[in-house]
Amino acid sequence: MIRFENVTKRFPDGTEALKDISLVLPTHELTAIIGPSGCGKTTLMKMINKLEKPTGGTIYIDENPINGMDEVQLRRSIGYVIQRIGLFPHMTISDNVSLVPKLLEWPKDKKEARVRELLQLVGLDPETYMDRFPLELSGGQQQRVGVIRALAGDPNIVLMDEPFSALDPISREQLQDELRNLQQTINKTIVFVTHDMDEALKIADSIIVMRDGQVEQIGTPQQLVDDPANEFVRNFIGVERINQKRAFGEKRLFEFLDLFTAEWSGGAEKISADATIEKAFLQLDDSRHNYLAIVEGEQIIAYATDRDLLKAALFKEQGVSV
């Protein structure tokens, strides 16, 4: 768990980038930080690995204040994906990915095995890509390498600063899906900065909405859409999206089977495919399970999480935007 306690940041030129921020970033969750450009997202994130130091307040990782920690050691234990990829152009993909393991002085075999494992994890064939240089890869491939480079040292915490913002919409959607799937496997504490609400709603467990160095609202994607704290959050989410969710809440589950998960082996709450999305949300909220099993007759035809339901609720005729 990362905890900010009354953190402020005033730059030497007088800019107040963060104003008395207190918040918690829960372990094993993907928290998105969102807000307009210049609201302090990057500054907030850089506080965690001490690339920026607070001018007031304290940051704790697992209740240990980071002020006293050695910054080089701390950074090696935290994955970092920078806003503009930042791969080292003169190093091979393999050298890029194994940078932190090298700093941590892992043995050679372990480093190489790690590089192979990670490349495979994001669908890049190790034999093909290990010895290539970053500029020989497409933007999407470079960004994947940027992400796995941050995971290489097996950190518990990963910081990502608008990692997908420079990509074309198709690669971006694809990488968002991949990150979501990846997170199911790796279960890291991820802090994900973005200015794209669609992206945040799609991948985050919880979302922190910022404005002007302050936190406007913290909540799950669903809470934000259902109950925006104020006018600013409402506008930022988009009135259109909120209304759409209301309207689509009346639609029935069987219309969206494509969006749901086909397989799930754990426990699930049964619900009829005829039920409305609104009802499904409520039933899942009350249930002790995280999954709904959608039944038609006696047969289970799909599974859905609250994220899947939100997807359905925000579904647009021309395609899935969330």
Binding site: N49, L51, V72, Q73, L74, R75, R76, S77, Y80, I82, Q83, R84, I85, G86, L87, F88, P89, L99, V100, L103, R149, A150, L159
Partner: peptide, 15 residues
């Protein structure tokens, strides 16, 4: 950004 990436990953100034 290349240098910041290095710093963020825990490289020392000499490295």
């Amino acid at each position: 950004s290349t240098i910041e990436a290095g710093r963020g990953m825990g490289m020392t100034r000499t490295q």
